[in-house]
Design a protein around this nucleic acid. Structure first.
Lengths: 253, 253
DNA sequence: CGGCTGATTGATCCCGGTCAAATGAGGTGG
DNA sequence: CCACCTCATTTGACCGGGATCAATCAGCCG
């Protein structure tokens, strides 16, 4: 952590911007000025949304950058006949679509999975933010590269892993990503997605997803109850998934 | 095209940098100075590689930006047990991994599928290039955003489309992407990938991929012979794939 | 209490994987 | 020019993971 980060966090436990700072700082050691700039930018235009709200739709004009402060969301694409694929999960601290204003329209939709708090930046605000401090600009670039790497890993998941591996792999990934932003308590974390959502991220039917979860439970690897997930044997879960965390590019520094 | 682009292309038919300029210019109208800067940068360090060469491996230091001038390559990830997923196809004119030097290591490998010519830029050269001209910087950003969108579409392909749709979809995509860089002749284009490669991009077995291709041939949609693919009925192929080209973000301007 | 959403279970089916072999097309050395 | 090898494509037979269809169950809320 940069010299001032600890101090800036002290006494601000409920501080909404914290996850964004933690996340970006995990990619690039942020300067004190950079941290302050991010905090200031994140406080400009804070919005809330309930669960199940589509905050951006395929075809919409793409001109808004969003920093997600709390809650979960996802990107998905729907086919005409109702099939749906979730192509990424958006967690607290994630920033969506830096530089997106260079494209004309959204090619997918963003849907909240829980009630969320996020802050919106328009092009001018975002460009001001990244031009103020080089560590901030680099951190946003890193985040974009890492997000892309995650989406590629999902392609591997969907194309070449069987149901058990897919589900185990996603769980390992979420564990790591949530840990960075302080959302993991021991080996448990809030897991607020429905089985239908999880089926659409793993490319499975809800029925088979349910059976796969039961398999993981029966093997003693996880407990999932009341929207809370506990990993009982991380090593075993990782090896069941053939999980290698390199692609997350955490703790670059 | 910008005022000078036509002129600059004139009389340089065999010009290797042309595809890169065409590609970037399709995202962002490049200034004459920008075109010149790209051409100059692309001539600095030109390399060749044969078919089937791994020009970058998972775990390697990530510090080189590559502009692909001719030939096809792919990114892939291999699992320990030999399963392999191709996560993107790299076509002439594509630039790989702008800003990649911000990450420490490659999380996947790059493999040539045909003999290729490409040019390498180190961090300094790339930063010089994008800081010289705003249209160039924006074009590279656009390309990165579009490449990411393509990777997301592949996740949809792998997760929610059946074999016939997957193969038809990839073919539609390649047709559009190659058209932009002038590699399509009528409704035919060079298609230099083996069925094994195509199986690894569509998440199918070679056997089933072969049968799927035959199905497309039997339906009169395509001919694939001698590494050359012809689309006989683009409308029908598109509707079989439920193909919507929006995600390619071509011709933004 | 009724209605709704999400989780679970059971039975059946089929798409696509696997295994194995045959066919074809270069390429190369004798 | 032919024998032989390798790599890619094709075909056939069989099998199984996961989809589909259909109920049932469990919270939760008004």
């Amino acid at each position: 952590m940069p010299g001032g980060l600890g101090k800036m966090l002290a006494g601000r436990e409920s501080d909404q911007e914290q996850s964004v700072v933690l996340r970006l700082n995990s990619y690039r050691r942020l300067s004190d000025a950079g941290v302050a700039a991010i905090r200031a930018a994140a406080r400009e235009r804070v919005l809330k949304a309930g669960a199940g709200e589509e905050i951006a739709g395929e075809g919409d004009r793409a001109d808004t950058i969003r920093m997600f402060l709390s809650g979960w969301a996802c990107r998905y694409k729907a086919l005409e006949d109702g099939r749906r694929q979730i192509v990424s999960l958006i967690l607290p601290g994630d920033t969506c679509d830096a530089h997106i204003y260079l494209l004309s329209t959204m090619d997918h939709s963003i849907l909240t999975l829980t009630p969320i708090v996020y802050s919106e930046l328009d092009r001018a605000a975002f460009e001001r933010l990244i031009s103020a401090d080089i560590t901030v600009a680099e951190a946003f670039h890193c985040e974009m590269l890492a997000a892309r790497a995650v989406e590629r890993e999902w392609a591997v998941n969907l194309g070449r892993r069987d149901a058990l591996e897919r589900v185990a792999h996603i769980i390992c990934e979420l564990y790591e990503r949530l840990r960075v932003v302080g959302q993991v308590d021991g080996s448990s974390f809030a897991f607020p997605v429905t089985q239908m959502d999880l089926a659409d991220t793993t490319g499975l039917s809800t029925v088979h997803l349910n059976r796969t979860l039961q398999e993981l439970r029966a093997a003693g690897l996880i407990t999932l109850r009341d929207r809370n997930l506990t990993i009982h044997d991380l090593q075993a879960l990782r090896s069941a998934a053939m999980f290698n965390p390199n692609y997350l590019h955490l703790d670059q520094k």
